[in-house]
Design a protein around this nucleic acid. Structure first.
Length: 213
DNA sequence: TTCCAGGCAATAC
DNA sequence: GTATTGCATGGA
């Protein structure tokens, strides 16, 4: 996949070091071959929020929500907790499930502050309302640079279809399988997950059946 | 118009 | 304990 698609440069980040956040993460947000992100605490928090907002949602919709959060001054834990009634919901409307996700962002902001800058363990993340296995692993892998395998719906589907392991293949089994068959480095884990998503997107564009099949 | 996206929690059986 | 349902917008 790497040879076919090239390095993906995940996790995409907004360019809000400058004053105007870019709308398309594609321009400045991806950073192929550079696994040193996040560079700032603000970027770390942005990745966490993106991981929550992208749950069952196209990334383009999430990008718009992130830009709105920056505009509203809400892409930061304390402002999220202090936001006026409905302000958070309005900012993230484009990401879908906006009421549920606003609640999730508040729950995470509280947890994040409680961490006091420490790297959260997987179990701790899973205990936060609104954070399940994929979101927890994404946050650890991309926001905290931990070598944590991320499995998504695409990866699960591909493993099943190619018969890599026998059913029932749930999240944890798929995770263990991938861990056993990949070099345990941050770069490999990040690249693998991003490439699986890219692979699935291309298959879909080429007319492959979706999740129903 | 219908389908579906980088899931998760609540509810039903 | 496993299966289903609700959450919601925007693009193809």
């Amino acid at each position: 996949m790497l040879e076919a698609y090239g390095p993906q440069g995940w996790w995409p980040l907004l360019d809000h070091a400058g004053r105007n956040p870019t709308l398309t993460g594609r321009l400045t947000g991806y950073h192929p071959g550079d696994f040193t992100f996040p560079h700032t605490e603000s970027q770390r928090f942005e990745i966490c929020c993106g991981a929550i907002l992208t749950q069952n949602t196209a990334w383009t919709n999430v990008e718009k929500a992130l830009v709105e959060l920056v505009r509203a001054g809400l892409l930061s834990p304390r402002p999220i907790l202090g936001a006026a009634e409905g302000a958070l919901e309005t900012a993230i409307r484009s990401s879908g499930y906006f009421r549920a996700k606003a609640k999730k962002l508040r729950a995470f902001a509280e947890f994040y502050l409680g961490q006091g800058g420490r790297t959260p363990g997987r179990e701790a993340l899973l205990s936060v309302w609104g954070i399940g296995p994929e979101t927890a692993d994404s946050i650890r892998l991309y926001a905290y640079g931990q070598v944590e395998m991320v499995i998504d719906a695409y990866t699960l589907r591909v493993l099943r279809r190619h018969g890599f392991c026998r059913p029932p293949l749930d999240y944890d089994r798929a995770k263990r399988y991938c861990e056993q068959h990949l070099p345990r480095t941050l770069a490999d884990y990040q690249e693998f997950h991003a490439l699986m998503v890219e692979h699935a997107k291309r298959l879909r564009a080429a007319g492959a059946p979706g999740r129903a099949a």
